[in-house]
Nucleic acid binder design. Structure first.
Lengths: 243, 243
DNA sequence: CCTTCCGTTAGGCTC
DNA sequence: GAGCCTAGCGGAAGG
């Protein structure tokens, strides 16, 4: 079996702890919550993050992020785990522990993610014709005109300014509003209204209406297409380097 | 020890599985990712959700939501867990298993959350003076004017329309833009510009500028204050019922 | 630090 | 099912 000292020892050693048991959970901080008695999985990680998982659902029912401070105690025969963080307090009272284990895990691997919006941006900068022929991104891309950051800012064949908003999935009304706030901000700044292009794999029907009404243009652009462009470019770079 | 059949059996029994071991993870679906070899915690829940947790961080590095389909197999001496879902595939290849356990957890408790935006809305409907004296929410509150849903729609003392946007934490520029899109949509619909009020515990400096420029009004309203109003109202209801 | 915005966001609610 | 919004969102990136 194990004692409260085993748990304290594991916490101090900065191991990952797994506790399965019957518990109640109270949270108070940015909001507040109460969870009555039931059987759950509690995970405590070496960075001070803590998760309470119910038997179903993707999300933890309660948690505290990394760098929370732990306190382990015993009260009325219950194991009490308290996780504290500026302004937030999570208390888990375990009346019965079905399982306890601790591990010192080694995990240095890189996590690589593909098909993100950042990759779409790279692809458009590498091949601006993905937006339209003659589109030229403006070199200095750190454009923060009062209200937010523009994904890509450039000029079209006729020299007119173009704001491009990228989305890796279907564009919705919120996305169009975001783009329009950039347009208006930039219009005030430059005196003329720039073109606005939303580039996404698809667009919601509702958003289509706003797009039509506000003169925004839609370009179909998928993350997959962008990955292909980047792969081709990478291949070309390698080829040029070899020569 | 345990065999692959133990794991299959636990999955079939719809238990919660906990596996700690050395693994690689591939994901392909809405995006794609690759995670090289390292030691992690894998959780499989009875509803088909699956989580891969690294030794640090609040979030799982890879996952699949509830109702994913599981396949357990053995390849090249590795335990291969595949989780599939419409258009998404998660593959975990375990080269070494340090720990395996399964549990049939019982958890029927209610989870109660307080201080949500929904509660703020209830409080304002119960006591509209939280917005201002004479404010009257319009009964028919299902207001979806082309672009999104308005939190609370009403009239002020002078009979002018008022749009109220509630936020449980500091209001930012995005929130103001959202409110303004409602204002403009409604202005087109009604012919006159309604008042716009953002009710939140605080407002960011950036948002303050837009508020001033666009004629939006800010009302300080905290979730805590709303909870007190609701508690008082509940108390009153109970008192009236007792008589 | 503040601000902004992405995310395999998830999850819920409404039409 | 489609669309929209909240979340104790978390996390990263930029100023």
């Amino acid at each position: 079996m194990f004692s409260i000292d085993d748990i304290r020892e594991a916490v101090k050693r900065k191991s990952m702890l797994i506790i399965v048991g019957r518990c109640r959970v109270e949270y108070e901080g940015r909001a507040a919550s109460h969870l009555g008695e039931g059987e759950r999985l509690v995970i405590i990680k070496e960075d001070g993050s803590i998760l309470v998982h119910r038997p179903v659902g993707y999300e933890p029912v309660n948690w505290n992020p990394p760098n929370s401070k732990l306190d382990i105690s015993e009260e009325d025969g219950e194991l009490v785990i308290t996780s504290m963080r500026s302004g937030e307090r999570l208390e888990i009272r375990l009346s019965e522990i079905k399982h306890f284990a601790s591990f010192d895990l080694v995990d240095d691997a890189e996590f690589e993610m593909y098909a993100s919006e950042a990759e779409m941006k790279k692809a458009v900068l590498a091949d601006p014709s993905l937006i339209e022929d003659g589109f030229k991104p403006v070199e200095d891309e750190r454009q923060a005109f009062g209200s937010g950051r523009i994904d890509i800012f450039g000029v079209d064949l006729s020299g007119r300014f173009v704001i491009v908003e990228l989305k890796r999935k279907e564009a919705n009304t919120q996305d169009i509003n975001q783009l329009l706030s950039y347009v208006e901000s930039l219009e005030r700044e430059l005196g003329s209204r720039p073109r606005a292009i939303i580039a996404a794999p698809s667009i919601s029907r509702q958003a289509t209406k706003i797009v039509a009404q506000a003169g925004v243009e839609f370009r179909c652009l998928t993350p997959r297409r962008c990955m292909e462009v980047l792969r081709r470019k990478k291949g070309l770079d390698a080829f040029l380097k070899e020569r």
